[in-house]
Design a protein around this nucleic acid. Sequence first.
DNA 1: TTCATTTGACCCCA
DNA 2: TGGGGTCAAATGAA
Length: 309
Amino acid sequence: MVELCGGEGEGQIMLASELAQLRAMARELEAKMDPDKVAARELCRALASSVDRSIRLAVSCFPPPEHSHHAAGNAGRDAAFKKRQVMIPGHGGFRVRRSPEQCSDMCSVRCRKGMAKVRRQVRVTSVQDTASLDDGLSWRKYGQKDILGAKYPRAYFRCTHRHTQGCNATKQVQRADGDPLLFDVVYLGDHTCGQAAAAASQSAPPQLLPEHASQEQQSQSSLLAAGTEGIHQQVVEPMAAEAPFLFTSTTATGVDDSYFSFISPANSDCQFSSDFSAGSVGVDMDHEARFEDLFLNTPEFFQSEIQNL
DNA sequence: TTCATTTGACCCCA
DNA sequence: TGGGGTCAAATGAA
């Protein structure tokens, strides 16, 4: 993680300040624009709007720095779980052992479950439980577990329609150690039930999300649109280098609805992850560079666009 | 009565 | 071997 300037908190303030200036300049430019040049004025307005959203994104991308793990807090209780008993056949489960060949070696969770993994961070403005992290889909909690070294337990959810429609989507929700308002949400597998399409059609801006985009991407967009008052969505990182993500911003058309979106070419098979324990705050070098590049190049881009009008 | 949540037990795999 | 993920009985809420 590259610090923007000084500490992360200071960098966040400076970034927000710079973006605020950029927004003000865009509005000033719009005010000074020839009223006849409607397209140019719309572009300026869109620029201001986009920068406004960027400020929110920047704020949500730089949570408080401490993400230390608190060790040994759960050791005692967890030890109680380890009392082994004789397994009752057919009760609590014989499971199919997966061969190593069935799994990718890129990700431990994917390997363990053989499913796509998408990780997000969700920040809430007030203390809520994990069940209130509504992403527009219905989930049923099936477990909760204390995680070694983690301050808060991890909750396990699966799709409500698992049995009726055979939907294998699951998610894990865990409160971040360092920030009680930050939830780490990991989605596993795709929704194959009807609610996936319904949720997508309600939330997704069609020009941003292709029909084949995964449910995760679409619900992500929905949460992003929630703005500052509700739930904030943290940027996710690509884990697989061979599956690059398109960092899109529809600046030329439909600007006002645009937002930064990470679109995987491999739909739900893409993998996201972020290693918070390593000190990252959720934006990897690649995305950070693109983020920086976008803002460095934005004035020139709009300048040339305006000149072309 | 139905459905969701809680929680102890147990399996898988690194 | 132990941590993490899942199962399913018990319990609670609507």
